[in-house]
Structures are given as C-alpha cells and as structure tokens.
C-alpha cells in the first residue's frame, strides 16, 4: 500500500501514482504527453515518485477521468477541460472556445496572466489542482463530404462537432450529431454524417479520414488552440514533499510546451502527406459563414455568462487578456505572417 503522510523531511519515502487519461494508450500526441510526464517525473525524482499511465477504459472510461481523480481512484489525470462543460460551465475557457485565443496566447494567459489562478479557483471545490498539459495547436475545421460555399450549405448539414462550437453550429442551422468514436469513420464514409471535426493533420492522417471524406476545411474557428490538462487530486498533491510537488509542476510544464512542438512538427509533415500523396483538397470556409459563426459565438457565450457567474468572471479575465494579445499580435505575428509570404524582387 501507499503512504500518504505529509512528512516532508522524509526523503526516502516512495510514492506510487496512477495517471488515468482520456486517450488510448500511446495515442499520437495526446497520449504521448502523459507518457512523457511519467518518464520525466520518474527520472527527476530518482524513482521516489513513480507514475503509471492508464489509457482510456483501462481503469475508467475516457470521460470518467474527472470523477476518478476527484474520488481518489487515481491521483492524477490527463484530459481536456472542455469535456467537463456539463459539470463546470466555465471549463471550456481553459481548453478552447470558438474564435478564442490560440496556443501561444492561451499559454500566456494561463502562466503569465490570471488564467492559472482562476483555473485553480474553479477546480478547487472539486478537490482538483489543474496544470496545463499540452496543446494541439490550431486545428483544422474538419473533414467534409459536402462543399460549404455559403450559409445555405450549413442548413441541415449533419456534423459531429462537440462543445460550445456545437451550440454555435446548431444555432446556424446545422444538425450536430453525437456519435461514438468508433462509428465516426463509417458514418462519414457512408454519409450518415456530412462532416466531422477531429484534431489536425497529425491525428487525422492516422485515423485515415482522407479515405472517407472529400474536403479538408481549414480555419479552425471552433478550436483555435486546444489546451489539454493534467488534473491532480489535491490531497495526493499535498501529501508529497515540497520537492516532489515542484517536480510534478515542472514536468507538467515541460510536457505542455513539448506537446505543442510535437504537434507543430508532425502536423507539418502529415499535411504534406495528405496533400501530395493522398491528393486531399484543402478548402477555406467562406467568410460569410465564419462571420455568422462569430456572431452566434458571441450569443452563445453571452447566454453562458448570463447564467453562470463563475463563467462571467473567467470570461472577463480571458477577454481582457485576449484583446490586448490580439492588438499586439496584429502588429507582430500577423504582420510577420504577411511579410514572410511576400515575393522577393
């Protein structure tokens, strides 16, 4: 058995943690994050804290991670905050919201703005301590078998699109469909659904969506940079000596930054394979559709913060930070993206 006495002077004490995740074990990107975390922690602590990673369904199902860490089944979990929208309406702000911040901005808000403090405050009543746990970077709008040339094409469009974006899509006249992951590919291939969002080229190529759908649409209005999370049971964390607590924090931070690098590197390669080898057609969602989505997103968020004071508080901080970041990025990143594509004389 494990000992949970908070004896911080006892440096020889061993801790064995279980880490449950929402992904299949070793799933590219998402699943490699917790694996790396376990490796870092084991090595940095000299084996005093060992973390064993469990894939989705091994101990609890993918969406049981929150409750499992909360009730002490496992000391730790790796998942995405937007999955807890039904429990904590404010949760999506800590992963990704439509037309929200990208990875770089979100990381800045979390670690150098009020983000992390708010996140901790929101999770505190559940006995959970959150850490940023990686980011997929800007995703793709999804795989479509019907062309989207105007708002009319959204009417009755059947798409698997979860979260707040699903609410927006529904208000725009689309039909959000809830599907088990296993049925996704066939449903898209046969036409049971017209479209689905997934992650980005890295994961999408592995899933083989290019064999089931004609068009790969861009501009991930729905998930501009999804942050993942490590959640730690508060009692378990406090039972660790101070140095091990720090190791947990730093290892999570390392994984957080590493996953984004991994996605950037692998997405680049995978996109080339999709386009050059499999002849996938990349398409851009039309501006009037995006404008409509944007307006509806404002409505959805307005409804959300009206009904939930916590969301109102979190969104206030989020928005204030976002507006500053956008102004700066307009003259820096965005200006440079334009600059570097200029043709040389």
């Amino acid at each position: 058995g494990e000992k949970n006495t908070a004896d911080t002077t006892q440096k020889t004490q061993q801790f064995k943690w279980k880490l449950v995740t929402s992904w299949p074990k070793n799933f590219p990107g998402l699943g490699l994050g917790p694996e790396k975390f376990a490796k870092y922690v084991n090595e940095m602590s000299g084996g005093r804290l060992t973390v064993k990673v469990y894939g989705a369904g091994e101990i609890v199902p993918a969406l049981g991670v929150f409750e499992a860490v909360r009730n002490g089944t496992a000391q730790m979990g790796h998942s995405g905050a937007y999955y807890w929208k039904g429990k904590i309406p404010a949760a999506p702000f800590f992963s990704s919201i439509p037309f929200g911040m990208n990875a770089q901005e979100l990381n800045a808000w979390i670690h150098h703005g009020e983000g992390l403090a708010l996140w901790r405050e929101v999770y505190k009543p559940f006995g959970l301590v959150p850490f940023a746990g990686g980011n997929t970077g800007t995703q793709m709008a999804g795989w479509f078998n019907k062309e989207v040339n105007s708002l009319a094409d959204i009417q009755g469009l059947k798409m698997r699109i979860p979260g707040l974006a699903g609410d927006v899509f529904q208000r725009a006249g689309g039909v959000p469909v809830n599907l088990p992951g296993g049925e996704l590919f066939t449903a898209l291939q046969t036409g049971a659904i017209d479209a689905t969002e997934w992650v980005g080229p890295y994961n999408d190529l592995a899933f083989g969506f290019h064999k089931a759908a004609k068009y790969y649409y861009t501009s991930a209005w729905h998930e501009p940079g999804s942050m993942l999370e490590f959640i730690v049971n508060e009692d378990a964390l406090l039972a660790l000596p101070a140095d091990l607590q720090k190791i947990v924090e730093v290892a999570a931070r390392a994984v957080n930054s590493d996953m984004l690098s991994e996605y950037t590197a692998e997405n680049n390669k995978a996109l080339q394979t999709l386009v050059n080898k499999h002849g996938v057609e990349i398409k851009q969602l039309p501006d009037d559709v995006l404008r409509q989505y944007k307006q509806l997103t404002d409505e959805v968020i307005a409804d959300l913060i009206q009904n939930d004071p916590v969301s109102k508080k979190v969104y206030g901080s989020y928005l204030a930070f976002y507006e500053q970041a956008r102004k700066y990025h307009e003259v820096s990143e965005q200006a440079y993206y334009r600059t570097r594509e200029l043709k040389a004389n």
């Binding site: 969406l63 409750e67 909360r70 009730n71 937007y82 999955y83 807890w84 929208k85 039904g86 429990k87 904590i88 699109i161 979860p162 979260g163 707040l164 974006a165 699903g166 609410d167 899509f169 529904q170 959000p176 809830n178």
Partner: peptide, 23 residues
C-alpha cells in the same frame, strides 16, 4: 452514493451541444 450525490450537487448537464440536463 457519493458519485451520484456529486452529480446532483453540480446539477450535472450533458457536455454535448443541445444535450439533456438530467445527467
């Protein structure tokens, strides 16, 4: 018991768009 109680405590709703609010 506690698992169910926690859900009542949160008045847990579906995380899916347009889902039911009676989890």
């Amino acid at each position: 018991f506690e698992y169910v109680l926690n859900s009542w405590d949160m008045m847990e709703t579906s995380p899916e768009p347009g889902g039911l609010a009676f989890v």
